[in-house]
Amino acid sequence: MHNWDTRDESGSDTGCEWEKDWEDVQRVCHQLGLPCEKIDLSREYWNNVFEPSLRLWESGETPNPDVWEVKFGVLLNKMVARDARWLAMGHYAGIEWAQSTKSSRPRPRLVRALDKKKDQSYYLSGILESSLGKALFPLQHLQKAQVRELAMKYGLHTAQRSESMGICFVGEKRRFTKFLAQYISPKPGPIIDMVTKMQVGTHQGLWHFTIGQAAKVSGQRERPKHSAMLSSGIITRNFRWIWDDDAPIAVDSRDGFRARVQYRHAEADTSCVVWRRSETDICIDFDEPQLAISPGQIAAVYDEAGRWCLGNGEISESIPVQ
């Protein structure tokens, strides 16, 4: 799957990230005697992921474009059109089938992978139930080290390949703000010290920063985390339950329901109470104040055990500690 067309930036595909990935795919498939085909979804990625993310960055929010999947939307539809029944992915996540009060048939649940450090259910928390039911996650019960061992056992070309840690369209070697500067015009504004209320500098646009990043301001000494960065809860917009007709009943009650929420990748989930404020807005009250909540990021809600992912929403605002 080809998501990003570097010709939009440089006029050439030479040396780009996806080109190297495609070479690896072809070599592994050749080793295993499997056919392979590259499907270009760069236009869909631009329209459905990149442009919406740009609007949020420009407004000062911090989106997580990796959560806005095209694999289980456009790609799956293309596979179904070819009479494919399943879509197997390399995500560290899992599926379990369970009964529901709204259906006589078992329904798929998105659950965390065995390897908690590599778990990617957070990224998949917006998946539709109809797509989840057609997905396969072969790595569900494997640790990352075991996957490496299997790749070495079968002599795969990618057995010693380093992990990719960059956002799809940025890669690993570029500065993120320099990349965004190609698409967003500067919007200068003052930098105000919350303690003294004095202007201490000028920024070139809110998208240069995110809450809690400890940005350095010329001539200013570092200060401990300000209490204004602590939040007692969050409000999410456009919340979508994976079982969209069977949200937890208690979400509409006065006390809500006990759950766990993860609002940033590579960070542990935290205990909370979840309740509905409107048809699309969900409120999440933390048991303990949380630091550096950034509007635009995704909040994924899990059951109280922290294993079954129920759905997600975009953080629209944080609730300050009183």
Rank of each mutant, 00 (worst) to 15 (best):
H2A: 13
N3G: 00
E9V: 11
S10P: 02
G11Q: 01
G15K: 08
E17D: 11
W18F: 12
W18R: 03
K20I: 07
D21M: 14
W22I: 00
V25E: 01
V25F: 03
C29P: 03
Q31R: 06
Q31P: 03
L32Y: 09
I39R: 12
E44L: 08
Y45T: 04
Y45F: 13
P52K: 05
S53T: 08
W57R: 10
S59D: 09
G60E: 01
G60P: 05
E61S: 13
P63T: 04
N64T: 15
P65K: 04
D66A: 15
D66H: 15
V67A: 09
V70L: 09
G73A: 08
L75K: 06
L75Q: 11
N77E: 11
M79G: 01
R82C: 02
W86G: 09
G90Y: 02
H91K: 04
G94F: 06
E96I: 10
Q99T: 15
Q99K: 10
T101A: 12
S103D: 13
L110W: 04
R112H: 03
D115K: 05
D115R: 06
K118Q: 15
Y123R: 05
E129D: 14
E129L: 09
S130L: 08
L132F: 07
K134G: 00
L136D: 06
L142W: 10
K144L: 11
V147T: 10
M152R: 15
H157V: 05
G166V: 01
I167C: 13
I167L: 15
C168F: 13
T177N: 10
K178E: 14
A181G: 10
Q182K: 14
Q182L: 14
P188K: 13
I191L: 11
I192V: 15
D193I: 05
D193K: 02
M194K: 11
T196W: 04
G205Q: 07
W207G: 07
H208I: 02
Q213T: 10
V217H: 07
S218K: 15
G219K: 12
R223S: 04
H226R: 06
M229F: 14
S231N: 12
T236F: 07
R237A: 13
R237H: 12
I242A: 03
I242D: 00
D245E: 11
P248A: 06
V251I: 13
V251N: 05
F257D: 01
R264V: 06
H265G: 11
A268L: 14
A268R: 13
V273E: 00
W275R: 14
R276V: 03
R277W: 14
D281Y: 11
C283F: 05
D287Q: 06
E288V: 15
L291K: 10
G296Y: 02
A300I: 02
D303M: 03
E304T: 10
G306W: 04
C309P: 01
N312I: 00
N312L: 11
V321P: 04
V321H: 10
